[in-house]
Amino acid sequence: MSDQFKVGSKVRITNAYPPGHIRTPFFLRGKEGLIIRHFGKYPNPERLAYGLNGLPKLNLYQVLFDMETTWRGDGSFAAKDTLTADIYETWLELV
């Protein structure tokens, strides 16, 4: 299951708003981006936050987003500008 994402995969951040400690920024939920780097596997922070061991480890990816689309043109950026966030596999869906 963890092999479904690769560098170059187009992904959507899950459009969900669960309670509890989360490391996926609110502004990215439901947004589309591109995986540009795979960092390996890391303990799940949503479990670590409650004193659990964070296992199983999750694949962590750097995902690139276009500023223009992410903010629907509302911000201070140039056409080429981008942003990235580091997202665990459980928050990603293939587009």
């Binding site: 922070p45 981008t82 997202i87």
Partner: peptide
């Protein structure tokens, strides 16, 4: 310059 891509890197995880 607007020709330079600014990439804002949000360190949301273990990096």
């Amino acid at each position: 310059s607007d020709d330079t891509e600014i990439r804002v890197v949000d360190s949301t995880a273990d990096c």
